[in-house]
Design a protein around this nucleic acid. Sequence first.
DNA 1: CTACATCCTGTAGCTGCTACAGGATCAAGG
DNA 2: CCTTGATCCTGTAGCAGCTACAGGATGTAG
Lengths: 148, 148
Amino acid sequence: MRPIKALRADGMPIGELSRLCGVNIETIRYYEKIKMLPAPLRTEAGHRVYGPKETRMLAFIRRGRELGFTLDQIRALLNLGGPEKASCAEVREIAKHHIEDIRAKINDLTKLERLLRKTVAQCSGGKVPDCPVLDILDTQGRIKTSRT
Amino acid sequence: MRPIKALRADGMPIGELSRLCGVNIETIRYYEKIKMLPAPLRTEAGHRVYGPKETRMLAFIRRGRELGFTLDQIRALLNLGGPEKASCAEVREIAKHHIEDIRAKINDLTKLERLLRKTVAQCSGGKVPDCPVLDILDTQGRIKTSRT
DNA sequence: CTACATCCTGTAGCTGCTACAGGATCAAGG
DNA sequence: CCTTGATCCTGTAGCAGCTACAGGATGTAG
């Protein structure tokens, strides 16, 4: 049984796909290894040959990553959007869940930023022994132990 | 030369430090390995013994991580806040830089959230063939398909 | 004295890549 | 036809910052 072969004319090599999608070569091979992308056809010499299908898929993955989806979430989305065009409701669920994650992250970061900003504002920048920035980091009195 | 030894009475074992600081045991040992924490004294049997100094240090690190500082940043802060109580200006610089990073991250996430929220809002949840969520992920027409 | 908790070292795994090493293959110029 | 240089291949190891074992050695309570 011969592995399916392709001619160069059937598609593009990995480097071109890489440039096209803005995903670097090693990442593409990595996606193949972890089965985010199907194994493509190969030329006689063993070079990968990609067609428009893979291009769309990879572009989808890249976009998903840009939007902060994990590879697992993207996998789920790919499966849902796959051949059977499953229910949009499921897609919606994944996206909504992701939005909640994002909101939570924004909240945390916003609180953090306020705290740090306020603290830095109090900082003279001189050689003060009690630097307010170090103070918020320092936990003296907050942990249940004693002295020093 | 004998390795410095300690009695149990001199301090606490790693498990207690772990509970005290809310940092898990393996992480403490990991910090020691990467030299975020100094190697503590040991009992005759080789068990680590921690005192208040290490406790404060670990608590400082933990707090820094909570505030989103990288270990390298925290290392820098620890050095600055160290024996010489170096200039507050340097601490301030690190913190300000970190704040900028946070702001950038918040901005990205906020844009993202708006996009996703808007998209999900358009989603009926039914079995529509064209799911808007999949559409923003899909890049058809956006990639420089075939010959550029 | 026996459980059982806690400690030790060391290694491998996680996510999402990136960066080699050490070859094979391809396309173009001489 | 041959050489150069770009591109391809596989495989492994590394990044941050941990976490999770395996397989022992100790400590402590009943």
